[in-house]
Design a protein around this nucleic acid. Structure first.
Lengths: 278, 278
DNA sequence: TTGAAAGCGTTACCAA
DNA sequence: TTGGTAACGCTTTCAA
């Protein structure tokens, strides 16, 4: 019964790819992507390990990861700054790839362009004739890295059109949604961050007697099954992540050809799925 | 910059707790539980590692896990038989804990009593006067370990009452649900496996002109937010997993006091949340 | 108080 | 072909 630690000590390197667990439990879309990546890397003979680095801050976390001497690290969100990347590389990591809305100095990046999501949703609402457009900002902590760029994207898309963008804070509770609906700030459309927040908000608005889409158009994101089941059917922004194979291949290539400039890949394929709620 | 492998090699043991990633991407309930466990074990100074063992079969998988010489292994579902447990213990694992519907020889068990879920749902439907009761069996592979016991539990609860239990296969697609609703086998109630399948089925039944709960009572499970947002509001079986701290404490105790018989803990706290769909 | 050496399980390499 | 040895990085132990 071999001993992995001894082997990698002797060899001076391992085939471990480390994926620090995201701080927020991932949604269905992202966790499907992660398990695809796991499968694909496994088929390339890497050992994929998700590391739960609870409550470690910044460089602390990177140091903890470095102790495992992974050959590659896939960092979700903004879990690692430039200093962290340097620590990892110094410890022998051949590839550090960040998955998130912004790139990090020294690391390869799969740039998840959440601004595009916001742009896409806002443009769709504008085309539908809406001019007072809200963008839901979830109150749950840890979602800012996604929600901020979505707001920014919506603003971009509507710059110079005369349409207004209003941030709409919303917690994922019926109470919060009811309160919002009761004091609805007269918006004629809202991009609800994702399909789940959209369902929550739609129900609250309907309970207040507002008609969707006549009084308020609602669009979600992620194209979850539940959107198709709602009435009116929920319009949504479909977000396509790259395939797990794609990321696995990137990691493998970078690991092999050790040198080379960090690559930046824009990876969110975004498209409106218009249905009945807008 | 210390080297974890060298340290654990020298020390002869590690503080790594291994959690093989479940074959099926976990639902919101279970993944929240897992990240609680991670946090709690982290606070007890264990290093929690999720290992993506893609496509390894039975003892193969156990051998791969054993190579990492974890001090404890938390095996979800039925990922490991008695032989696997023996392999792990021989490799030095002080605690092997299975999380699933049935116990495994030699391992401690957190017994997730899915039969209780089925019993609870069926009893509720019976109390509501229903006699021709369906139980959804998801067509998606990998859910059997949960769905089988739920069916069995429903049968148990209704044994000798004269009520009938019918298995209702259903894939998680609108098409499958529509087909089922179009040829609805005249059942007056259905336990839909969970809230998501319930939403899918409810919509399909409504689209066929059936009234809920008058024509068909529908109950889900998991008490997700979406059930509260549906109309009629979805009755559901709330399932409470133990706290992460509980499992972490169990692991810690077993690791310290090395000997001792395997413990079996029944851990699903199950209760009906009656709403408007039954 | 500081420093040197042994040994954990592997594997690469060299000698027989 | 086979077998023995050294070295990977760390910790523990023992000696100066």
């Amino acid at each position: 019964m071999p001993h992995a630690a001894a082997r990698s000590l002797r060899a001076g390197h391992s085939r471990t790819v480390l994926m620090p667990a995201p701080a927020i439990p991932a949604g269905p879309l992202y966790s499907a992507f992660l398990s695809e990546v796991q499968g694909a890397l496994g088929r390339l003979d890497y050992t994929v390990v998700q590391y739960g680095s609870v409550g470690l801050e910044g460089d602390e976390a990177a140091r903890a990861w470095a102790e495992l001497r992974p050959v590659a690290v896939l960092v979700p969100g903004s879990g690692c700054g430039p200093r962290g990347v340097a620590i990892l590389k110094r410890s022998g990591a051949r590839a550090v790839v960040t998955l998130g809305p912004e790139r990090v100095e020294g690391a390869h990046a799969l740039l998840m362009d959440h601004e595009a999501v916001g742009r896409c949703a806002a443009a769709h609402l504008y085309e539908r004739g809406r001019r007072r457009i809200g963008v839901v900002v979830p109150a749950e902590p840890g979602l800012e890295p996604c929600s901020r760029p979505r707001v920014a994207g919506a603003r971009q898309a509507l710059r110079g059109t005369g349409a207004t963008v209003t941030e709409v804070p919303l917690a994922y509770t019926e109470q919060s949604a009811a309160r919002l609906a009761a004091h609805w700030p007269g918006l004629d459309a809202v991009f609800a961050y994702n399909d789940e927040y959209a369902m929550l908000l739609m129900r609250a608005l309907q309970d207040e007697g507002l008609c969707i889409p006549e009084d308020v158009a609602v669009i979600g994101a992620d194209d979850l099954m539940l959107g198709r089941l709602l009435r009116p059917r929920l319009s949504t922004v479909r977000i396509e992540l790259p395939s797990g194979r794609y990321l696995a291949a990137l990691v493998d290539r970078v690991v092999r050809e050790t040198g080379g400039e960090p690559e930046v890949h824009r990876v969110l394929d975004v498209s409106v799925v218009p249905r009945d709620s807008t």
